[in-house]
Nucleic acid binder design. Structure first.
Lengths: 120, 120
DNA sequence: ATTACACTTGAACAATTGTTCAAGTATTGG
DNA sequence: CCAATACTTGAACAATTGTTCAAGTGTAAT
């Protein structure tokens, strides 16, 4: 019917189609790979890294994080929103102030392994 | 001299200037934070993640990685170049074929912790 | 030598990203 | 209630990113 759909299957140089299917089946699902990419992307920004390192030590307000990092409140708030969206931080309100904390025990592990790698 | 430089020091809401300096001193250096961001950014892309997961299992040629992931040779080659630039993979030539391998023992650790996080 | 194969490269492009700005909400103090 | 504080939001912008395309390299087979 549609000649465009009749394209030849991918040709592997060093293994069979069957072996290729086995390799593909070993990968995490598309959904997990996509979530993983989102997760790691979050760590790939210096402002967010600074926020995370600061929160490793103490709960902090948006304003104090801004002052510590030399950014505007708005910039920090935008970034905290992202960190919250994938559950790396959470916040609790005290009066007018939002105190942000780390939400995940994996954060410290990830940062540590990353630091080890770049320190070689 | 320059009135613009006479701006008020940052005001911290919940701690002193001195405590702020202590907190800032605890952070990794600017250079390390910047390298860390570069390092994590690499993991923040689905194509590169698929490449890394495949290389976790076996050495592979550019063409086979392309066929396995459904991308063009060119796209894969560009991504491998990035992975090589921060020493996550290396390659060895056999005739006309470049075989790519994982170069770093941290890769498996990072991917594992990431998967644990997104699987919760 | 010539051709094919396996890969790399640089430029172009759309898509995504981080920051700023101005305006908004929520809470508190007077 | 009104103003001040602390933060959030959405739109706009420049900067960066991933992919494609066309042209390039290097190696091997004939």
């Amino acid at each position: 019917m549609d000649p465009i759909k009749d394209k030849t299957p991918p040709l592997y140089q060093f293994f069979s189609e069957k072996e290729a299917e086995r390799k593909k089946a070993l990968l995490p699902s598309e959904e997990k790979i996509s979530s993983l990419a989102t997760f790691f992307k979050i760590f790939g920004d210096v402002t967010r890294l600074r926020i995370l390192f600061h929160l490793l030590e103490s709960k902090l307000s948006v304003g104090d994080l801004a002052a510590l990092t030399g950014m505007t409140d708005s910039a920090i708030s935008h970034q905290l929103k992202q960190l919250k969206s994938i559950n790396l931080v959470y916040c609790r309100r005290h009066g007018r102030t939002q105190f942000y904390s780390l939400a995940d025990q994996h954060v410290a592990d990830i940062l540590k392994i990353g630091l080890e790698h770049v320190s070689e």
